[in-house]
Simulated assay, not measured.
Amino acid sequence: MTAPTNPITPAGYAALKARYDLLLGTERPAIVEIVSWAAGNGDRSENGDYIYGRKRMREIDRELAHLARRLKAARVIDPSEQPDKQRAFFGARVTLADEDDVRKSVTLVGDDEQDAGAGRIGWSSPLARAIKGAAVGDLRSVRLPGGDKEWEVVAIAYD
């Protein structure tokens, strides 16, 4: 069985790598130092610094393991190098219009860098799956919790 790939933009990969480096190089050593100091103070059962430090170290280790898996599976895709810029693929900024001509602009990015408030939707989200491969003028239907909604692709751009 092959490992799942994680498509990601160069900026998204850099952000994941920066978070990993910060945790591994700065935060974890600081917590290790606090835990070592607290352990030397005697009774660990009532030592708040020791208990909190160990808890925080476990959280950091879990996040480091998660980031390591995501970075290992990452497949960096530069949106500017898409061969067919007339269709919506990874990294495309797509402007959509609904039945009432309400327009919405979304950018198709990796799942690790999605931010709906900023208009970046994950590659495996229902809306992204619906508009993959669409060209300007195509109608796409998306199944949402409130029911099906139809969108028309109005514009496609790659930064």
Results as ranks from 00 to 15, higher is better:
residue 38 A to R: 10
residue 38 A to H: 09
residue 38 A to Q: 09
residue 39 A to M: 06
residue 40 G to L: 08
residue 41 N to P: 00
residue 42 G to Y: 11
residue 42 G to K: 06
residue 43 D to F: 09
residue 43 D to Q: 09
residue 43 D to K: 14
residue 45 S to E: 12
residue 45 S to R: 10
residue 45 S to F: 03
residue 45 S to T: 15
residue 45 S to M: 05
residue 46 E to R: 15
residue 46 E to A: 12
residue 46 E to Q: 14
residue 47 N to Q: 14
residue 48 G to A: 10
residue 49 D to S: 08
residue 50 Y to S: 01
residue 50 Y to H: 15
residue 51 I to P: 00
residue 51 I to F: 03
residue 53 G to F: 07
residue 53 G to D: 08
residue 55 K to N: 10
residue 56 R to Q: 14
residue 56 R to P: 02
residue 56 R to E: 13
residue 56 R to H: 08
residue 56 R to F: 12
residue 57 M to V: 03
residue 58 R to K: 15
residue 58 R to W: 04
residue 58 R to Y: 06
residue 59 E to Y: 04
residue 60 I to C: 12
residue 60 I to Q: 06
residue 61 D to R: 10
residue 61 D to V: 12
residue 63 E to Y: 08
residue 63 E to W: 08
residue 63 E to C: 07
residue 63 E to R: 14
residue 63 E to G: 03
residue 64 L to F: 11
residue 64 L to A: 04
residue 65 A to F: 05
residue 65 A to N: 06
residue 66 H to S: 13
residue 67 L to V: 00
residue 68 A to L: 02
residue 68 A to N: 10
residue 69 R to Y: 07
residue 69 R to L: 12
residue 69 R to W: 11
residue 70 R to Y: 04
residue 70 R to A: 10
residue 71 L to K: 02
residue 73 A to E: 10
residue 73 A to W: 07
residue 73 A to R: 09
residue 73 A to T: 00
residue 74 A to F: 12
residue 74 A to S: 13
residue 75 R to D: 02
residue 76 V to L: 05
residue 76 V to S: 00
residue 76 V to G: 01
residue 77 I to V: 13
residue 78 D to K: 11
residue 79 P to Y: 14
residue 80 S to G: 02
residue 80 S to R: 15
residue 80 S to L: 13
residue 80 S to Y: 06
residue 81 E to L: 11
residue 82 Q to D: 05
residue 82 Q to S: 08
residue 82 Q to K: 04
residue 82 Q to L: 07
residue 82 Q to I: 00
residue 83 P to M: 08
residue 83 P to Y: 06
residue 84 D to K: 02
residue 85 K to V: 10
residue 85 K to T: 11
residue 86 Q to T: 15
residue 86 Q to D: 10
residue 87 R to Y: 03
residue 87 R to L: 13
residue 88 A to Y: 07
residue 89 F to W: 12
residue 89 F to S: 01
residue 90 F to W: 02
residue 90 F to Q: 05
residue 90 F to T: 09
residue 92 A to M: 03
residue 92 A to V: 12
residue 92 A to L: 01
residue 92 A to N: 07
residue 93 R to E: 09
residue 93 R to N: 01
residue 93 R to Y: 03
residue 94 V to A: 00
residue 94 V to F: 00
residue 95 T to V: 13
residue 95 T to A: 02
residue 95 T to G: 05
residue 95 T to W: 01
residue 95 T to C: 02
residue 96 L to N: 01
residue 96 L to Q: 08
residue 96 L to G: 05
residue 98 D to C: 07
residue 98 D to F: 05
residue 99 E to R: 14
residue 99 E to G: 05
residue 100 D to G: 02
residue 100 D to H: 10
residue 101 D to S: 13
residue 101 D to E: 15
residue 101 D to I: 03
residue 101 D to C: 03
residue 101 D to T: 07
residue 101 D to L: 06
residue 102 V to S: 08
residue 102 V to C: 09
residue 103 R to A: 13
residue 103 R to F: 04
residue 103 R to I: 04
residue 104 K to W: 03
residue 104 K to H: 14
residue 105 S to Q: 13
residue 106 V to A: 04
residue 106 V to E: 04
residue 107 T to P: 11
residue 107 T to Q: 13
residue 107 T to G: 06
